[in-house]
Simulated scan of single mutants.
Amino acid sequence: MFEVLVYVYENYWQGDACPELQRLGRKLTAAGFEAEEIQAALIWLDGLNAAAQGTQISLPASASSDLTEPGARALIQPQSPDSLRVYSVAEQTHLGAQSLGFVSFLEASGVLPPHMREIVIDRAMAAPGDPVTLDDLKIIVLMVYWSFGEEPDALVLDELCDDTEGRLAH
Results as ranks from 00 to 15, higher is better:
A90Q: 05
L24N: 04
F148L: 09
L42N: 00
E118R: 15
V111Y: 03
A52C: 11
G25D: 02
S104E: 10
I76W: 05
I119R: 10
L142M: 10
Q56E: 09
F148K: 15
D158K: 15
D158A: 14
L134T: 08
Q14F: 08
A52V: 15
A31Q: 09
A124H: 05
E159K: 13
T93Y: 11
W13N: 15
K138E: 01
I43Y: 10
S99Y: 02
S58Y: 05
V6Y: 08
S109C: 09
I38H: 03
E37G: 14
K27F: 05
D162E: 12
T29V: 11
L67Y: 01
L160C: 07
E34P: 05
E36A: 12
V111A: 12
W13T: 09
M1I: 03
R26S: 12
D46E: 13
Q22V: 13
D130Q: 14
A51W: 02
S109K: 14
P78E: 12
N11A: 07
A169N: 09
G25V: 04
D162L: 12
L137S: 08
D66S: 04
Q92G: 12
G32S: 12
G71L: 03
R167M: 06
D136R: 08
I139N: 06
A63Q: 02
L45E: 03
E159F: 13
A52E: 11
P114S: 15
V141G: 04
S99I: 04
A108N: 13
A97P: 03
A41E: 04
F33Q: 06
E34R: 14
V111I: 11
Y12D: 07
A154H: 09
F33I: 03
P81G: 11
G15P: 00
E118S: 13
P152C: 03
G110R: 08
L24D: 06
L155I: 12
E165N: 11
A126V: 05
I139G: 00
W146T: 07
A108G: 09
I119M: 11
E69C: 03
Q92H: 05
F105P: 00
P19V: 08
V111N: 06
E37V: 03
Q53P: 00
C161D: 00
Q77D: 08
R123N: 08
L106W: 04
S80L: 15
P131Q: 11
P114Q: 14
E150K: 13
V89L: 15
L106G: 01
V4Q: 04
W44C: 06
L112D: 04
L45I: 05
K27V: 08
F148T: 15
L84I: 13
P114T: 12
E20S: 09
D16L: 07
A63V: 01
T55S: 05
